[in-house]
Simulated assay, not measured.
Amino acid sequence: MSQHKVVLLLGSNIGDKKNNLDHALERLKEVGDILKNSEYLTSEPVEFVSSNNFCNIASLIFTHLSPIQLLNFIKKIEIEMGRLNDSKISGSYTDRIIDIDIVTYDALKFSSERLEIPHTKHLFERDFSRILLKDFI
């Protein structure tokens, strides 16, 4: 079974944010090995207004899952942790207990209705992501 190198970004701006991230990372160990995590970074919400700042972390994992299998597992984690609104479906951002994005998956370039790899907003447009990803990409 081949292993794929994947960079993820995780964020939370509701409840015990750091604990939410740690819980999601623990769940991700079910489908891969975590090789490296960034430091935690606090950032203001991007593309929506909220008084709740985010706690973010980047993670480098190896997984045997395909991109869509990994996305499905991530969505399962988000729903189980209480995330109610998916921005891809609703078209807008809101406060969230957990958000997990696949930033890169090997050197793959992939685009579908549900998933874009690489995640260009995180690579090029968002300051907090560039800070977190500087040692990963």
Results as ranks from 00 to 15, higher is better:
residue 62 F to G: 00
residue 81 M to F: 05
residue 71 L to H: 03
residue 90 S to M: 13
residue 91 G to N: 08
residue 82 G to R: 12
residue 76 K to Y: 02
residue 41 L to N: 12
residue 49 V to P: 00
residue 53 N to Q: 07
residue 85 N to P: 01
residue 53 N to F: 13
residue 40 Y to T: 06
residue 68 I to M: 11
residue 75 K to L: 15
residue 46 V to A: 08
residue 92 S to V: 00
residue 63 T to G: 10
residue 75 K to M: 15
residue 61 I to M: 12
residue 87 S to L: 02
residue 64 H to T: 08
residue 88 K to H: 10
residue 81 M to P: 12
residue 71 L to F: 00
residue 63 T to V: 13
residue 91 G to W: 10
residue 64 H to P: 00
residue 55 C to A: 08
residue 70 L to R: 01
residue 57 I to Y: 01
residue 47 E to N: 15
residue 38 S to R: 04
residue 80 E to I: 11
residue 44 E to K: 15
residue 42 T to H: 11
residue 67 P to K: 00
residue 56 N to H: 12
residue 55 C to S: 13
residue 70 L to F: 01
residue 56 N to S: 08
residue 56 N to Y: 10
residue 50 S to C: 12
residue 82 G to P: 11
residue 77 I to C: 03
residue 75 K to I: 08
residue 47 E to W: 13
residue 44 E to I: 14
residue 55 C to Q: 06
residue 74 I to A: 07
residue 59 S to I: 07
residue 45 P to Q: 04
residue 65 L to E: 06
residue 64 H to E: 13
residue 66 S to K: 14
residue 75 K to A: 03
residue 46 V to W: 14
residue 77 I to Q: 02
residue 78 E to Q: 15
residue 74 I to G: 02
residue 80 E to P: 04
residue 47 E to F: 10
residue 57 I to C: 05
residue 74 I to Q: 04
residue 66 S to T: 15
residue 68 I to S: 03
residue 77 I to L: 04
residue 61 I to L: 01
residue 39 E to R: 15
residue 49 V to D: 12
residue 88 K to S: 13
residue 51 S to E: 14
residue 93 Y to N: 04
residue 53 N to G: 00
residue 64 H to L: 00
residue 80 E to W: 08
residue 82 G to Y: 14
residue 49 V to W: 00
residue 70 L to K: 00
residue 86 D to G: 03
residue 39 E to V: 11
residue 47 E to Y: 13
residue 51 S to P: 12
residue 50 S to M: 14
residue 66 S to D: 14
residue 94 T to L: 07
residue 41 L to R: 10
residue 56 N to D: 07
residue 54 F to P: 04
residue 94 T to Y: 05
residue 59 S to W: 03
residue 88 K to T: 09
residue 87 S to Q: 02
residue 74 I to E: 03
residue 95 D to K: 07
residue 57 I to W: 02
residue 75 K to F: 08
residue 55 C to R: 07
residue 95 D to V: 11
residue 93 Y to S: 04
residue 42 T to R: 11
residue 45 P to K: 04
residue 53 N to I: 03
residue 69 Q to T: 01
residue 81 M to I: 12
residue 69 Q to S: 05
residue 72 N to R: 04
residue 90 S to E: 13
residue 64 H to W: 00
residue 63 T to C: 09
residue 46 V to H: 07
residue 91 G to P: 03
residue 53 N to H: 11
residue 64 H to V: 05
residue 65 L to S: 01
residue 91 G to Q: 10
residue 57 I to A: 02
residue 76 K to H: 05
residue 81 M to N: 06
residue 91 G to Y: 14
residue 41 L to A: 12
residue 89 I to A: 05
residue 95 D to P: 06
residue 56 N to I: 08
residue 91 G to I: 12
residue 46 V to R: 05
residue 72 N to D: 11
residue 87 S to Y: 07
residue 55 C to G: 00
residue 41 L to E: 06
residue 46 V to Q: 09
residue 43 S to L: 00
residue 79 I to K: 15
residue 71 L to M: 06
residue 94 T to Q: 06
residue 55 C to I: 14
residue 54 F to L: 11
residue 53 N to P: 05
residue 68 I to H: 02
residue 49 V to Q: 06
residue 55 C to K: 09
residue 92 S to L: 08
residue 77 I to P: 08
residue 79 I to C: 09
residue 75 K to E: 15
residue 90 S to D: 15
residue 53 N to W: 12
residue 83 R to S: 04
